[in-house]
Design a protein around this nucleic acid. Structure first.
Lengths: 198, 198
DNA sequence: TGACAACCGGAATCGTCCTTCCGTATAGTC
DNA sequence: GACTATACGGAAGGACGATTCCGGTTGTCA
């Protein structure tokens, strides 16, 4: 979708190759979302209707393929964050972004695993997102609706923890994470602020 | 430590076997805490100063070994919860338990992985803990210091999410989880309650 | 249509563990 | 001190998955 095609300074791909590349990405999205990082390359290939060899001609390693999807995810987050900046109410803007980001995460098992493996690598996109979030936070804090002692570094932590809760099967149900996030957000409102440790 | 020795209805272990069993458990605690579930049996054996074969004579599979440690962990949680019940201030009792449980979790990488793999299997001990936590919650709610719309099912979710944050490397630092938990607890206080979804 | 580079499928390869097996060593006993 | 049931070490076996390789296809262009 927002994934860039092959590098521009290469001769264009042959039609079948281009088609396969798309199929592979689609299959990857589906398989990794469902089964997480340990989805197998062969399943992925079967799902895409190609041989494993073909997958490897387009993406040198499994990791590279995952990276492509992660990139995609951050691009979406970035878009959400920018849109949030347009929302009038500062709390709605901030909380709304968090909710939407969580929703995005909740649909993808592999994403939770990757972001939680503590990677959180930098990268231009990631940096920009971080700043946008910083702006959302500042705005809410200036409006006095968000506790003043949190910063944009707390957001990845929140996303990480929500992701984890989303992966919990059965018991609390796949929907329990909404309760969890609601509580967390209540904890972020100024009204409830108690001094944070450190 | 609190791990029961081999089943009582077996003839007692030979002295060297008993000693090795302890060494293996110690090594397992250390290795799994450090490296998580994918610590390797051979490393563990080396650390214990025995051969892999010996590890397998004491524990039929890697999983069994992990289970033993998990059992241990829940026993500790159980003890903490009972002690918390003795604390006079209802909020201190509840929050104190959560903090201590988190502290326990934070020292063990494998534990986080296991509990988060959504297992949360039942078992007498698990059941008892669940009830004790229920009592802690009720007490705090009756005292009006804990939001009335949470239940003991929310606690595993909280532990899970905290565990995840604890595993985050670098950036927010290994200590960021305290901030996170503090915020969560603020969200749990009655003062901040906003209706929960569902 | 013919020629050829670009592609493809999927069997075979390689690595990484967990687990098993068996010859050897030793605690416990007479 | 000798005997034997137990226990030990660590090499070998097996399973599973990512990645590589190469003989066979198929777009593309003249």
């Amino acid at each position: 979708m927002s994934t860039p095609a092959a590098p521009a300074h290469h001769r264009p791909l042959r039609a079948d190759a281009r088609r396969n590349r798309e199929r592979i990405l689609d299959a990857a999205r589906a398989v990794f979302a469902e089964s997480g990082l340990d989805a197998q390359m062969e399943d992925l290939a079967r799902r895409a209707g190609v041989g494993v060899g073909t997958v490897y001609r387009h993406f040198p390693t499994k990791e590279a393929l995952v990276d492509a999807l992660v990139e995609d995810y951050f691009a979406q987050l970035d878009a959400e964050a920018r849109q949030a900046l347009e929302v009038a109410d500062p709390w709605e803007a901030f909380a709304g972004y968090i909710w939407r980001a969580a929703e995005l995460l909740g649909h993808n098992r592999a994403l939770v695993q990757v972001t939680a493996d503590g990677q959180m690598r930098e990268g231009a996109e990631r940096q920009g997102l971080h700043e946008t979030i910083g702006r959302l936070i500042e705005r809410a804090q200036r409006a006095g609706v968000l506790r003043p002692d949190v910063g944009s570094d707390d957001v990845p932590m929140i996303m990480c923890s929500i992701g984890r809760v989303q992966m919990l099967g059965g018991a609390a149900g796949a929907e329990g994470w909404r309760r969890h996030l609601a509580i967390m957000l209540d904890g972020l409102r100024t009204a409830s602020a108690t001094p944070l440790p450190d």
